[in-house]
Amino acid sequence: MNIFRLTGDLSHLAAIIILLLKIWKTRSCAGISGKSQILFALVFTTRYLDLLTSFISLYNTSMKFIYIGCAYATVYMIYAKFKATYDGNHDTFRVEFLVVPIGGLAFLVNHDFSPLEILWTFSIYLESVAILPQLFMISKTGEAETITTHYLFFLGLYRALYLMNWIWRFYFEGFFDMIAIVAGVVQTILYCDFFYLYVTKVLKGKKLSLPA
């Protein structure tokens, strides 16, 4: 464990909690892409199956349960509890165009052709593009609630911190995982446009509205 990975995990946890509290407190999921949240639940489910097979540490196991629990709770709130506030008309990204090719890619490019490893690879690839429906929805509505921009900021920051973690681990431990690194770079690049808007607008107290 190093400082980049720890702050990365805490940033990820903060994002997940911010979103959960936003929906719970405002009793509304307006502006939130349910499709992205389904993809994240799928990412955690396919990545954390090793909960059943191996124990690494209390931290590792507890964080995985928290991530999975919050992800499904968020999906439940969007599609069941606060379904009336779900903005389906703007959440129209064709996720099948992501899931199917990525499923194929996970079979072709992986470290080991075993079920757990292919599912882990699938979850790594999927996570890198899972935010696209959410970013697409914001581009369609042309704006985002400020709390949603904080959610996206911490979510984007977490993988950027993981990139630093991998530089650290390569330098000090000689460890590196090309699949996770390439997917992590793609994932972080997808947030660059948002990071620019977040820093130039939201941090200056303005609302995040795309070029109107």
Binding site: R5, D9, D50, S54, I56, N60, Y162
Partner: peptide, 10 residues
């Protein structure tokens, strides 16, 4: 074993 350690990231 080594592979277990590698998958110690979330």
């Amino acid at each position: 074993d080594e592979s277990e350690k590698d998958k110690d990231e979330l």
